[in-house]
Design a protein around this nucleic acid. Sequence first.
DNA 1: GTGATTGCAAATCTTTTGCACTAAA
DNA 2: TTTAGTGCAAAAGATTTGCAATCAC
Lengths: 138, 138
Amino acid sequence: MDSIVRPYSQVFDTLRKVGLRPTRQRLGLARLLFENGDRHVTAEQLHAEAANANLRVSLATIYNTLNQFTGVGLMREVVVEPGRSYFDTNTTDHHHFFHEDTAQLQDIPGDAISVGKVPEPPAGTRVERVDIIVRIRG
Amino acid sequence: MDSIVRPYSQVFDTLRKVGLRPTRQRLGLARLLFENGDRHVTAEQLHAEAANANLRVSLATIYNTLNQFTGVGLMREVVVEPGRSYFDTNTTDHHHFFHEDTAQLQDIPGDAISVGKVPEPPAGTRVERVDIIVRIRG
DNA sequence: GTGATTGCAAATCTTTTGCACTAAA
DNA sequence: TTTAGTGCAAAAGATTTGCAATCAC
């Protein structure tokens, strides 16, 4: 049964590559985050999920890890609600639906939306990123 | 000199119209907010500005007022940064530049940007609003 | 007067930080 | 060993809330 060994070594290498020590906590969190497709999580959600998977990680480490993963480009931070941050494992160019009722984020496929006219940024500035949030209700 | 009297009565009527008692605090804040064109403020900013204008208002009241003004449609809340809310006096359909360096919001004229293709919302949901944030750096 | 509004301080919530302890290399 | 990483509890920051005092009508 290499279903345990193989994924670990992949994640292990990924962490090495970005210069983060493959600790038990980071390995566990990385597996939760990256081995289940595109994910949008808050720190609290990931914390609960880790506990559920018998992975003992403190909330402080969850925050540190999410910030580090974001810092090295493994994740992206998405801001849609005051007072809560979401982290997205999909780092490709794309946008989001935000379900106002359930506070859930959902990717909009890259080609399902586009900015028609990109405005000229004010003199002396450059565009860093364009975020589109389509707020929906059910 | 009706430069004092007239604006007050206008703001007075506006508050009445939306069902909020025209108190000294709400009148003062409304004047600061609406008599200087389009504004983007945080609670702290408005609090400082009020103090500056010799308007004594507690921070709690600033928060209450911004939320009430937003609730009745006089303002809009814009979320661009984790942990801080901006309130916009421009309630027309428009989008924003966000200066990542200075944490300043700036309106994008309504016709300078547009969504090319609006994606179909997931089944059973309707689009409430589309927010576009163009993040820029100087 | 009566009910809405305000101010203050305390409470809440999310996120960050300091520091002693633990683990990776 | 040596240095990075972790956990805990405390701290920090933004926002909300409870309640007595105050104000609008």
